[in-house]
Design a protein around this nucleic acid. Structure first.
Lengths: 130, 130, 130, 130
DNA sequence: GTGGTCTAGACCACC
DNA sequence: GTGGTCTAGACCACA
């Protein structure tokens, strides 16, 4: 799985890394139980500090996306991912709200916005083949 | 128009302020040409720092949502808001991508996600005319 | 409130710090809403690195014992502490189990063990006066 | 006697192993003089590293719970277990202190805590004779 | 001045 | 070899 980081972006590196791993899982490129590179290996691979990788891993572990296994190292959570509870929905709503407010101001219609979302969803629904 | 700030949130105050003003515009609570409170007045009203209000206003001006007249004070952009250009769409896509990736991992279906978006859109469409 | 760290102990410094702050809260020495020193100030005070203090603070925040307020800085959670949910009870049971197993082997009676616990509890029940 | 290890836990494997053997002794499932599996046999049985089992055994020997004979193999200490000296009590107190502090913060009453301890004790008192 | 992020290098516990 | 901890110094966003 390819990971591309933009070291100039305002989005922190550890967050970009975290997001790309989640995207990898969503796309099915990373399957539950699969092993991820060690912090050191990934850090060297990406040319970043090991602590930055570690921070991403710690948050993914905290969020229930990966496990840190004594023997197997870091692996994608094999026992199902955390459900979308009420708290998550509220957070999502809070995140989308300002996004949509600005979109409305810029004259974007509901259909256009929804189409964009659907397009992004499609990217993750190819899971049959891969 | 009521503004509510969460001083404990990780989202910076100036950004919350900016978002709420944009939401006010999207809802039609703030109409083009309408005058906004001065930096000083708003800062005192909200009990926050002058610089914080100023930063929000500067960014809103930069994004084309308000005008800052030396005499008339601060007014909502009367000559139409900036359009959604290609750059904006790309930014929106980049923002939505990780959000949707996580939603997919948590088992949320496209339809559920779109429904949430539509519900938020409704909040901004109650205004009849505008 | 006095904080004493044992830099030689196997228990990580950030954990000692975390525990002492929790103890301070339990004793009533730190009251909800009270301000804690900044990471830098406390780090210098204790002669340790600011990241170590930060780690303790982050975990306390994560566990709901403190808030990191935009203006007031770091404060003891004013809106009530996290409840003891099922998960917490299970964790506590898991922690106590091996402790009690060893105590049994060493011939300690239930009464003796419970007395020790009660004595420790007393330390936190002085809250009327302070 | 069944041993269950959680390879994902933060508690090191050797420690889990050690604790479960102590628990086995406390419950009377392992009686003084009884032979334990060899390092090699147990490691293979549990699917873990030789060194891990060895470390657990060494610590148990150090703490006086087992003997390691070059010929008879590994046996549960037949001549009585180490007493609970002053040092042990102090260590126990130090371990319980932060546990109880957190419990107090979470609103747990002394009685509830003591009840939990008593319940765990019961688990070890089913043995009639010992 | 605050906390947040990133880098770099070191030591240790664990396996 | 792995991850966990600690230190140190730097820069930036925020208020």
């Amino acid at each position: 799985m390819l990971i591309h980081l933009d070291l100039e972006a305002s989005d922190p590196i550890y967050n970009q890394l975290k997001n790309q791993i989640i995207a990898g899982i969503a796309k099915g490129e990373l399957v539950p139980g699969e092993r991820l590179p060690s912090v050191r290996a990934l850090a060297q691979d990406l040319g970043i500090n090991l602590h930055t990788v570690n921070k991403a891993y710690q948050q993914l572990k905290q969020d229930g996306f990966i496990l840190i296994h004594r023997q197997k190292g870091v692996v994608v959570q094999p026992d199902g991912f955390p459900e979308a509870d009420e708290e998550y929905w509220q957070g999502l709503q809070k995140t989308l709200h300002p996004l949509i407010a600005e979109a409305v101001c810029r004259g974007i219609k509901r259909e256009e916005f929804v189409d964009l979302c659907s397009e992004i969803f499609k990217e993750f629904e190819k899971q049959g083949g891969k």
